[in-house]
């Protein structure tokens, strides 16, 4: 089922949770909505599910207006952040709920319901828990039961709100891989909300980066990491060094120093230079675009992370770089630095 969202606006009081959002989701995609809290990602998900209503705009499923239908008629599976399992029902009854509340005319008989629930519990590998109550399950188990319950109604779309948010690191990792393999198995159009970039980049086919109720960029995980469209995306995804620079007449200045980097086609004015930590190449002193003194070095695994004080005319700026360990850095070394890759975005905060 393809989803199309057009010009969606949602305000809570004066706060714009969604500010003219457009989005297309192709059939069978596994899409991540990524953004900081308050970016509107959960609101967008809830509106698609029918649990919230937009102030204006359109939502359509396969070209048909979804806003004309309530949540119960949209055939959307929703997995809540805190699972929202029915606490007074067993695991079995939780999963069976969506089948039992169907109108009598289309409701399956008891044997068919039992078979379907068994099948779903097998799918999430928890059939041995069917007589337990939600309070007797671990977080990861509850999450999978919530998923099985959402899948029971054979949804055309699966929506997950911070699906791994409340779990500890190890379980998260397992569930991520599990969700991805589940998706390739059942192939239902799925959208999940997360504030964890690693989660989004690792699980999703496509990532939608949101901030302040707007979509900043839509792209594959590789895309949003390598070619961030906006300063926000560059700063939000991956670790970046950000330096305030001034662009004029094809030159990039940090303080009064002209940096030896290409500035073709850039807008003049106050800007920001973004460089990934690992894209900063260490050179001998006197060469390279920037120069600074090493203040602190820590090594972990294959990299050494160095704190470097860049000398700028009016004082110094501290940055952190990740360098390979083949040429060890010492505290006090004066080094040149050259950005292998960088982006300059107009405007300063």
């Amino acid at each position: 089922m393809a989803i199309e969202v057009k010009n969606l606006v949602k305000k809570f009081g004066t706060f714009a949770a969604l500010d003219h959002v457009d989005l297309r989701v192709a059939d069978g995609e596994l899409l991540a909505l990524l953004g900081p809290s308050g970016s509107g990602k959960t609101t967008l998900l809830r509106i698609i599910a029918g649990l919230d209503w937009p102030d204006s705009g359109e939502v359509s499923f396969d070209g048909q207006d979804a806003l004309a239908h309530g949540a119960g008629e949209r055939n959307v599976g929703f997995v809540f952040q805190h699972y929202a399992l029915f606490r007074h029902m067993t695991v079995f009854e939780n999963v069976a709920f969506g089948l039992r509340v169907q109108p009598r005319a289309v409701r399956k008989d008891e044997a068919a319901i039992r078979a379907r629930v068994k099948e779903l519990l097998d799918l999430v590998q928890l059939d041995w828990l069917s007589d337990r109550y939600p309070s007797q399950l671990s977080g990861g188990q509850r999450q999978r039961i919530a998923l099985a319950r959402a899948l029971a109604i054979e949804p055309r779309i699966l929506l997950l709100d911070e699906p791994f948010g409340a779990l500890d690191a190890k379980v998260r990792k397992e569930l991520r891989q599990w969700l991805r393999s589940l998706h390739s198995e059942i192939h239902v159009t799925s959208i999940f909300v997360t504030h964890d970039q690693e989660e989004a980049l690792e699980v999703a086919n496509r990532v939608v980066v949101m901030d302040k109720g707007r979509i900043e960029q839509v792209g594959t995980p590789g895309d949003v990491y390598d070619n961030p469209a906006t300063a926000f995306v560059h700063g939000f995804i991956g670790e970046s060094i950000v330096l305030p620079v001034d662009v004029s007449e094809g030159c990039v200045r940090l303080g009064k120093k002209v940096l030896n980097i290409a500035a073709d086609g850039l807008e003049s004015g106050a800007s920001r230079l973004f460089i990934r930590r690992h894209d900063m190449q260490v050179e001998p002193a006197g060469t390279g675009a920037l120069e600074g003194a090493v203040r602190h070095v820590r090594t972990f695994g294959p990299i050494q992370r160095a704190e470097v004080a860049l000398s700028v005319v009016d004082g110094e700026t501290l940055i952190e770089i990740d360098a390979p360990r083949d040429r060890p850095l010492q505290v006090g070394d004066v080094i040149g630095l050259h950005p292998r890759r960088f982006r300059i975005f107009a405007g300063q905060e």
Binding site: A71, G72, F78, H82, F86, F97, G98, V101, Q102, A152
Partner: peptide, 16 residues
């Protein structure tokens, strides 16, 4: 209201 929202999204009516 999360459990109610879950029930509604699973197709339950208000009374159910």
């Amino acid at each position: 209201t999360q459990e109610e929202e879950a029930a509604i999204s699973l197709g339950a009516s208000g009374l159910q």
